[in-house]
Write a protein that binds this DNA or RNA. Structure first.
Lengths: 184, 184
DNA sequence: ATGAATACTTATTTATAAGTAAGGTACTTA
DNA sequence: TAAGTACCTTACTTATAAATAAGTATTCAT
């Protein structure tokens, strides 16, 4: 059973990634938990403390994701990564990077700094996996690894955003074309 | 000299694309114009009326963009489109699609519907230009036109978002790799 | 000259947001 | 057993948001 503190983070994640950082309040969190908003302030005194804790949670989560998948082939690692975004798409949300990138001017410097760390962690991991796939002949691309990583990342996170609007097969079109292009 | 009504739209565009829809208020708009917030309500009774008007403005603007560039070659049309996003990147903002896609659950149905129209307008235009470039031999890609259009669009709008976070050459890396891939 | 439309202001309402001070309860450790 | 400490509630403050009702000034057509 998750602690109140964990439940708060979980709900904050839900709201930030479905409505945006400025669009949710402590009342949105306290109500479903059956507590008062002052209790949320007890665990996270300010909204930016909550934002910081959320990014930290995602950093931890991503580190575990890396470890869990490090023995897989580059192709399978990329597929697992894209499947993670597929589940985001199915939930109707966007990813943390997508959410906070548009909320950039509404978050404080600490959150911005941690988000930069997190984003570079993802880009660096993608670069490494793509490079490895290039070395083993599993992938085929002409870009520098970081450029290719950026293209994959921007494609997939923006696909999750765009497909909220067009409400179509667009996410799947993008996802499949990423795999096709990398392995062609 | 722009009318008050035009200035309001312009400021709303600034705020929505730099901070997000939920993060700005009528006071943010009325103050720099030297008017009262009730005057903003006079022109746009509710915030969603303002959102609808803004999307309509972007639709008009995009139609004019299409007309102005229709005589150009496919390669130049794509470059002009990417340069438009480059100016968004330099201004530190994101595009309308990027902004409203993360604010999706905070905007009303009318705005959602118009935004869907606008987004498909952009995707359809990109598809056509890409197809024409394929026919004339200027471009080279294996995807269906819509899939290729989606990849270009998601790459460039997410690059504008991502480069707010990483604060680096990442936007330019993505932009140049799009052109390189299309014309290789 | 007048009445209507346009473009506002003044003044207010209602609701919600973020945050805090002070207190209560229960469990825990010296 | 007394003092912490963790985890809350009650009750409040301060600020801001969206929206509206009613009034004012200016222009413009008849």
């Amino acid at each position: 059973m998750p602690s109140t503190k964990e439940s708060i983070i979980h709900l904050a994640d839900e709201f930030i990634r479905s409505r945006g950082y400025t669009a949710f309040s402590y009342a949105d969190i306290s109500k479903p938990l059956g507590i008062k908003n002052a209790a949320v302030h007890y665990h996270y005194p300010s909204k930016s403390d909550l934002a910081v804790a959320l990014v930290e949670w995602h950093i931890d989560h991503f580190e575990r994701f890396k470890e869990k998948n490090e023995s897989k082939s580059p192709a399978d690692q990329i597929k697992t990564f894209l499947n993670f975004y597929h589940s985001i798409h199915l939930s109707g949300k966007v990813c943390l990077i997508g959410a906070f990138s548009t909320d950039w001017n509404s978050i404080n410097e600490d959150t911005q700094g941690l988000l930069r760390t997190f984003t570079n962690l993802v880009i660096d991991w993608l670069s490494e996996v793509l490079q490895k796939g290039l070395d083993t002949g599993a992938f085929n691309f002409a870009n520098a690894p970081r450029a290719e990583a950026l293209r994959v990342l921007t494609n997939i996170f923006a696909a999750a955003q765009l497909s909220r609007i067009t409400d179509s097969q667009d996410f799947i079109l993008v996802k499949e074309s990423i795999i096709r292009e990398l392995t062609k």
